[in-house]
């Protein structure tokens, strides 16, 4: 078939699917348009997809600099998500290298212990975790939150698959040249698996950013709240002001959406890889 020629059947299916996708995204479109409206126009019917009376500036100003200032929670969320991602990537890639490229007798046993913890649903260990963190002084602190998200079995397992793909000859050659494991890890192995680490980093960032349960349980002080927790508190306080709630929701979703659209290929490949390994 000629490539420049448009397949008519395909075009029609594309258009139909496109309308389905718009219908699928209507809640987002409604959220966005409501966040620009004045309160009185929220429930007008038929639905005004384009606001007639604009109030965007004032709505977003209230969300970002009002009683529950989102700029503060943004900063908290960025701090927690970035640090969690950094620590988690470091810990996971170190462990992944150790479990794949260093041969030591206890290795299998230790890997077994790490893998076994994957069977535990996170909520099943929640209560003792809370007791432990409280006694260690990690309750109500960002450090505690960061530690909670930093030890990912799935991350270690995923990166280990990639380290195992590095040929042993390469490692052996470096050893003969007198390089130690640390040097091999840093100069040879890590650069090879860098794309995998980047994919894992994006996923970890998204998961941490969207996490609601851990902040809810492990944070108490208002000024430490992450964006998800603040979003929920903001809703409870401003329950009658739907435009403000939608402006807050847009604010909570948008930055991650941008990260996602930029890193789209990596996220989708990462998710697919997490599910299906060829």
């Amino acid at each position: 078939m000629n490539k420049t020629k448009i397949d008519f059947k395909k075009l029609i299916i594309t258009i139909i699917t496109f309308f389905c996708s718009i219908a699928f995204l209507l809640p987002f479109i409604w959220m966005l348009s409501t966040s620009f409206k004045i309160e009185a126009d929220v429930f007008n019917f038929p639905i005004q997809w384009l606001p007639e009376r604009w109030n965007a500036a004032s709505n977003y100003k209230e969300v970002w600099f009002g009683d529950y200032p989102f700029y503060l929670y943004y900063w908290n969320s960025i701090k927690v998500a970035v640090l969690t991602t950094l620590v988690s990537c470091t810990v996971s890639s170190l462990a992944a290298y150790g479990f794949s490229k260093v041969r030591f007798p206890a290795g299998k046993w230790l890997f077994f212990i790490v893998l076994a913890t994957y069977m535990v649903p996170p909520q099943a260990s929640l209560v003792p975790q809370f007791l432990l963190f409280r006694s260690m002084g990690l309750f109500d602190s960002h450090l505690g939150l960061i530690l909670l998200g930093s030890f990912s079995v799935l991350g270690t397992f995923m990166l280990r698959q990639f380290f195992m793909g590095i040929h042993t000859d390469l490692i052996e050659a470096a050893k003969i040249d007198g390089a130690g494991h640390w040097k091999i890890f840093w100069i040879i192995a890590l650069p090879i698996v860098r794309p995998a680490v980047a994919t894992y980093a994006i996923l970890r960032f998204i998961w941490t950013w969207n996490d609601y349960q851990n902040p809810l349980i492990f944070l108490r002080t208002d000024s430490l709240y992450t964006i998800q927790l603040a979003m929920q508190k903001f809703t409870t306080i401003n329950g009658e002001f739907y435009t403000l709630m939608m402006a807050a929701a847009v604010s909570a979703i948008l930055p991650l959406l941008i990260v996602f659209i930029i890193g789209q290929k990596q996220v989708i490949e990462g998710i697919a890889l997490g599910g299906v390994k060829g």
Partner: peptide, 16 residues
Amino acid sequence: ESIAGALFVLPMLIGV
């Protein structure tokens, strides 16, 4: 090898 291996996996192991 044992020491190197242990050092690499130690942070993860303690955390988990």
